[in-house]
């Protein structure tokens, strides 16, 4: 048996293991889920409100990540500032932080006894236990995914093309939409998809910072965890439904790659 053949075998074996690690739990979930009770489950008010809230919260978190993340990514990719390496590391920290710790960190900042909590309290704003808190928690953990993918897209985009556009009379705004946007679009969409998926699955930071109240802060992952206590089968089904929706959304975004 040649060495090359062995190497190839090793490669396939490792890849198969990797695939199995992803697919087997998902398959287990799909097989165990009592699909027949889907309709009944979807008629439960708590489930409906969790679904609605989850889409609202993850959507808002993705939008917020874009609004706050784009300027940051621009700064990192296009502006020369001192300490950029440190800034970049700082911005990706939420990715390695355990989500519960992220929640505690948010409380330490915006909680009633946190750094900014007293000032917020003075103007009548209490963030914990609000839907906004759930949005902030999801944004905190998911924005780095969008920022890193945008930053590398901006680094790869040719500045010279934007200069050419300017020399042809394009305002920075016009050149942004007609020249930069088409070139970063695939990375932007991929980043948005990742960011949204992470926000949709967010659990630890949300329960810690925002709590768990139906209709206000109980997103799907929290509802699933709570259902697991009383109706494990329903929790499985809801988890499987979340999976299906995520796959559909991610696949539709992936399909948006422009033709070469």
């Amino acid at each position: 048996m040649s060495l090359r053949w062995l190497q190839l075998l090793g490669l396939y074996a490792a890849a198969a293991l990797g695939l199995a690690l992803t697919l087997v739990p998902l398959a287990g979930l799909s097989i165990r889920a009592p699909w027949a009770s889907t309709l009944e489950l979807l008629q439960m008010p708590s489930v409906r409100s969790a679904i609605g809230l989850s889409f609202a919260v993850s959507g808002a978190a993705t939008l917020l990540s874009l609004l706050l993340g784009f300027p940051l990514a621009w700064l990192l990719a296009r502006v020369s500032i001192p300490g950029k390496r440190w800034l970049r590391t700082l911005l990706t920290l939420p990715l390695v932080l355990p989500p519960v710790v992220a929640g505690v960190a948010l409380l330490a900042a915006f909680g009633r006894y946190g750094l900014l909590g007293a000032s917020l309290d003075a103007v009548g704003i209490r963030l914990p236990f609000t839907t906004l808190a759930a949005v902030l928690a999801a944004t905190f953990v998911s924005a780095p995914l969008l920022i890193t993918s945008l930053e590398s897209a901006l680094l790869q985009a040719e500045v010279r093309l934007e200069q050419v556009a300017a020399s042809l009379g394009a305002s920075p705004w016009h050149s942004f939409w007609t020249v930069l946007m088409p070139s970063i679009r695939p990375a932007l969409l991929a980043g948005l998809a990742l960011c949204w998926a992470r926000a949709l699955g967010e659990f630890g930071a949300t329960i810690t910072f925002a709590g768990n109240l139906e209709g206000r802060t109980q997103t799907l992952p929290l509802a699933i965890y709570q259902l697991l206590q009383s109706r494990p089968e329903a929790a499985l089904l809801l988890g499987a439904l979340l999976l299906v929706v995520s796959v559909l959304v991610l696949a539709s975004l992936r399909g948006h790659r422009p033709a070469p």
């Binding site: 409380l107 209490r126 236990f129 329960i207 810690t208 709590g211 709570q226």
Partner: peptide, 21 residues
């Protein structure tokens, strides 16, 4: 007046200590 139903009892004290309930 409930702002959160915690998934275990220790969540209750944590919310009082940290979140300002």
């Amino acid at each position: 007046r409930v702002v959160s139903y915690e998934l275990d009892v220790r969540g209750v004290t944590a919310k009082l200590r940290l979140a300002g309930a």
